[in-house]
Design a binder for these strands. Sequence first.
DNA 1: GCCAACGTTGGC
DNA 2: GCCAACGTTGGC
Length: 154
Amino acid sequence: MPNHWLFKSEPGAYSWDDLVRDRVAEWDGVRNFTARNLLRDEIKTGDLVLFYHSNAKPPAVVAIAEVVRDGYPDHTAWDPASDHPDPKSTPAKPRWYMVDIVPREKLAREVSLDEVKTVPELSDMVLLRQGRLSVQPVRPAEFETIVRMAGTPR
DNA sequence: GCCAACGTTGGC
DNA sequence: GCCAACGTTGGC
């Protein structure tokens, strides 16, 4: 069984449409140890990802992506020309990790953060409990609930 | 643009 | 190892 996750991205930086255009993305630039540990150790090929637009109007889950490569070192960390270099990370001792994802399907309609907050069975989502974590686990039931909401008119 | 929450850094 | 200072995220 695949595991389920939620990845956040600011659409101004990298949107769902960007992923569709690129067909595959290296999920680079994550610079948080909790998220790093998930990327390095837990998130595996075949896992499903809720793609969330943060800092959007409204912030919302917009689509489903799929992991196509297990965690590997984020090479942008030791590239001084990248958007998020970290001199403490080297090829010999990588500090940050990433996975590759591909677009799987856009939700029939997006499910906003406000809407997530109204659903009792979603009240324990990491999205609500620990709002700032940009790569986070999602329970299978939570994943199913959101997908179902996306197919159901308000 | 503001600011609360919270993760990270570094002095001690 | 503690904790103050600082930086970032992200909702509003």
